[in-house]
Simulated scan of single mutants.
Amino acid sequence: MSAPLLDLPATGPRFPADRSGVAILGAGTIAQSAHLPAYAQHDVGVTGVWSRDPSRTAGIRDRFPGVGRVYASADELLADPEVRFVDLATGPEGRLAWLERIVDAGKHVLAQKPLVATSEDLAALPAVLARADAAGVRVAVNQNGRWAPPWRLTTLLLRRGDLGEVVGVTHVLDKALPPLVGTPFDDVRHMLLTDYLLHWVDVTRTWLATAPEGHGEVVAVRAYDSRVPGQPAAAKNPWSATVELSTAGGATATLRIAGNAVASEPSCPFWVHGTTGTARGSVLLDSDRLSLDHGDGVVDLPLRGAWFVDGFAATMGELMCAVAEDCQPENSAADAARSVALVLAAAASADADGAPVRVGAR
């Protein structure tokens, strides 16, 4: 059943009238495969880029004619008066130091996810964000998965009450893992829990948080990961991971990677069960879909856009709109830090053989 007459909220990126003045600090693989294509597609003005490795930016203006210049140094980028927004696309190591430099330069910043990767940096983050607030600088995080069309529409429908209060959320990754062996990602302990699943944890926390009166606050995390049959010996990280979230109001969520799944039609299906209805969908790999079921039939909802690259444009657009509207962005660093706390708790639980880790108080 289609849904042409439903009053559905828009899920795509939104921008203020002026979408200029972006500079990318750390123009590596993800910046060139997703950030720059997103900015080109959505007419975001890229003042320039910088990379610690000059070979990364060689020929970049030929590939992306919208890039104004290649900076000789990070200092030159931060000193440019035309730069209003810094897309901080480096890894999480040294993230707080970069944030402090950008804040001191008076630039708003969109930081790559994960915002931070250690409990020590997470504990130090509030002081950096207070420094940004004092300087009138907005800090957002590139949690681009929030704007994957099926996930984004689910979020907006939950916020307006279309499913009632969330009872449970389930995600299954029915797809092969990306190449990990020999990559820097494989050197990260509990990589699936702390990095790969962060988008899934983040959007799930966002859905649970739509519950009233703090009922959606995640208060406990249980997680475990394990090596699986067929996993090569050279792989340092386990290829199976499960995360379970429990909330103050009793709602729960489960996120599951069974292993390196063999699938002719790979997908990432999800279910959101609410007190008045159920949303069923999938993201990635041309599997995007979303339907609503209120017990009297299933309605297939139309979707527009794609996670890659609209989600990357949307995170910057949200930051720009927050600056123009003088408010905090939906993907603020303070909000994204709550998701980081959950994945760090998941790693701690895995280290404790799956024992629950408390992250809040009832």
Score class of each variant (00 low, 15 high):
W271C: 02
E120T: 04
L96A: 09
F270D: 15
G145C: 09
R56I: 04
P184C: 03
L99G: 13
V139S: 13
T11M: 03
V283E: 07
V169C: 12
K236A: 14
D195Q: 06
A124E: 15
V299S: 07
A31L: 12
C327E: 13
I60N: 01
Q112T: 12
C327K: 14
S33E: 09
R84D: 15
L208Q: 09
P54L: 14
D296T: 06
L129N: 10
T278A: 06
D300S: 12
C321P: 07
L342I: 13
A324P: 08
A253T: 06
N260R: 01
G274C: 06
D353E: 09
H42R: 02
D43Q: 11
L78K: 07
G214E: 12
A211C: 08
G136Y: 08
F64D: 10
S226Y: 02
A38C: 04
D186G: 04
P92G: 10
M191K: 10
G161D: 15
A176Y: 06
T315K: 11
L193H: 11
S33T: 09
V116K: 14
V44Q: 05
A27W: 09
T170M: 13
R146V: 12
V109Q: 10
R84T: 13
R222M: 12
F270Y: 14
L77M: 15
V116G: 11
F270C: 14
S264V: 08
P54G: 10
A258H: 04
A347V: 00
T183H: 07
A27N: 12
A74L: 05
P178T: 09
F308Y: 14
R56W: 07
W307T: 01
G216V: 06
